[in-house]
């Protein structure tokens, strides 16, 4: 192999530039290694996808794929989810939005499924970046799942709304008894699926099939469907009340993966649209939310410049060579 000095210099320069880009989080390739930047904001965010400041926060589109690794496989109807993130007084806010032509908020329908979205983070005690497929033993994941039906308070209230003249006679048992844990076992056992007062469930997992309720249900959220698009905001303080959950700190990076369920497609369980882990970067400095990502612009300008220079150089070489040929 022939080594030329200019070539070695070029490679050296590229290695240094690449390493710098890697350390500063400047992107050098599209699609993979997406970084979601959570900027610190001065005003306390509202738990509302329509909060005015969200418009000014840059968004990151994350590609989703159908889940094809384990039973039950499925999904494939939601190609991407758009993410925004901010933090304020040691509390993280993440907004996810995605296109979905149908609003699926089943109340008591037994054959209908709800639209939902979940964020997945490495657990605090994870000794390494866990598998984005529900984590692994020793490196668990923390999942916040928002469900449209839970937000709508499906259950008893929906039942009463759907059948206003319906009456359950409790078969002679006192009514308070039939509403008790014994007669609502999932609720009585503290299964967060049965809760009617929270739209978001806080969960932990260490492998497929191990998803369980976290000891503290401290993630909250609110979602809204409008014009064929769901927007959901999640929030949780940087530190959780129990140790299995994710831990955040300003100036530190962690990972984030997203899953979206399309109720109209019968999505539930593993039948969902999934992303790989993207990087979640919590900026340290308090900045006003800005509308453009100057880092990427700056890098793009440099790359463009390099291209122009190289192009000119090639034309020059070609010209020189051409002259040489004529001379010959």
């Amino acid at each position: 192999m022939k080594w030329s000095k200019p070539a070695v210099l070029l490679v050296g320069a590229l290695v240094i530039a690449g390493a710098l880009a890697g350390l500063t989080g400047v992107r050098t390739a599209t699609s993979q290694a997406v970084t979601l930047k959570a900027v610190a904001v001065a005003d306390k965010p509202e738990l509302n996808p329509d909060w005015a400041t969200w418009v000014k926060i840059p968004s990151v589109d994350v590609q989703l794929t159908n889940q094809a690794v384990t039973y039950p496989k499925g999904g494939g109807t939601v190609p991407a989810v758009s993410l925004k993130a901010v933090h304020h007084e040691n509390t993280l806010y993440i907004r996810a939005s995605w296109k979905d032509q149908t609003e699926n908020v089943p109340s008591i329908d037994m054959a209908a499924f709800t639209d939902a979205v979940a964020l997945e983070f490495p657990g605090k005690s994870a000794v390494s970046v866990p598998s984005f497929c529900m984590g692994q033993p020793g490196s668990g994941v923390n999942i916040w799942q928002w469900k449209a039906d839970a937000q709508a308070g499906a259950g008893s209230a929906a039942l009463a709304k759907l059948y206003p003249n319906g009456y359950a006679d409790s078969s002679g048992f006192p009514e308070e008894l039939t509403k008790a844990a014994l007669y609502q076992p999932a609720f009585g056992l503290g299964n967060p699926v049965a809760r009617t007062d929270a739209a978001v469930q806080t969960l932990v997992a260490q492998a497929f099939g191990t998803l369980s309720a976290a000891a503290a249900q401290d993630a909250t959220g609110a979602g809204m469907w409008r014009n064929g698009e769901w927007s959901v905001v999640f929030t949780r303080p940087f530190s959780a009340a129990d140790g299995d959950q994710a831990e955040f700190a300003a100036g530190k990076n962690t990972n984030l993966a997203v899953a979206v369920w399309d109720g109209a497609n019968g999505d539930r369980a593993g039948q969902k649209n999934v992303s790989q882990f993207v990087t979640l970067q919590l900026s340290g400095e308090l900045v006003k939310a800005k509308s453009e990502d100057w880092g990427a612009l700056w890098f793009g300008a440099i790359l463009g410049g390099v291209l122009v220079v190289l192009g000119l150089a090639a034309l020059g070489w070609a010209g020189v060579a051409g002259t040489a040929k004529e001379r010959a």
């Binding site: 490679v11 590229l14 290695v15 530039a17 690449g18 390493a19 880009a21 890697g22 400047v26 992107r27 050098t28 390739a29 993979q32 290694a33």
Partner: peptide, 8 residues
Amino acid sequence: TFPVAALL
């Protein structure tokens, strides 16, 4: 290494 390889 990823961005280095990408630039190269």
